[in-house]
Amino acid sequence: MGDLPVKTSPEEAPFPLTDVDKWVLSLTDEDFHCHDWEDMKNIVAENNLSVLKRKPSDLQRYMTWTAETKADYGSMTNYLLTHRLPKTWGTPPFTPASTIPFDDPSDFRVLINDWPYGLTSDITHIVVWSRTIIETDPQTGDMTPRSRQIVANFVKKFFADKLGPRGGEKVLWFKNWVALQSVRSLEHIHLMVKEAGESVINEWTKELDCHRMQN
Rank of each mutant, 00 (worst) to 15 (best):
M1P: 14
G2C: 02
L4A: 10
T8H: 05
T8D: 06
S9T: 07
S9K: 11
P10W: 02
P10A: 01
P10K: 08
E11D: 08
E12S: 11
T18S: 14
T18N: 04
D19T: 15
D21N: 06
S26L: 10
L27G: 14
D31L: 14
H33V: 07
H33C: 02
H33F: 03
H35D: 00
H35G: 01
H35W: 02
E38Y: 06
E38A: 05
D39P: 00
D39E: 06
M40H: 01
M40G: 00
M40Q: 03
V44I: 12
A45E: 10
A45M: 05
N48V: 01
L52P: 00
L52Q: 01
L52G: 01
K55H: 14
P56N: 06
S57E: 04
D58M: 13
R61P: 00
W65P: 02
E68V: 04
G74D: 08
Y79L: 07
L85V: 08
P86D: 00
T88G: 12
T88L: 05
W89R: 03
G90E: 02
T91V: 09
F94C: 11
P96C: 08
A97E: 12
F102R: 01
D104I: 01
P105V: 01
F108Q: 06
I112W: 01
N113Q: 07
D114W: 07
D114K: 15
Y117G: 09
G118T: 05
L119P: 14
L119A: 04
D122A: 05
I123A: 08
H125F: 08
I126D: 09
V127N: 14
V128E: 02
W129P: 04
S130Y: 15
E135C: 01
D137H: 07
P138W: 00
D142C: 15
P145N: 12
P145I: 15
P145Q: 09
R146P: 00
R148N: 06
Q149V: 09
V151C: 13
K156H: 15
K156M: 14
F159C: 07
D161N: 04
K162Y: 13
G164H: 01
R166Y: 15
G168A: 03
L172W: 09
L180D: 14
S182H: 03
S182V: 12
V183R: 04
R184Q: 06
R184G: 03
S185H: 06
L186C: 05
E187Y: 10
H188G: 03
H188I: 04
I189M: 15
H190A: 01
K194A: 09
E195K: 08
S199I: 11
I201A: 02
E203R: 12
E203L: 15
T205Q: 05
L208Y: 05
L208N: 04
H211F: 11
M213G: 13
N215I: 14
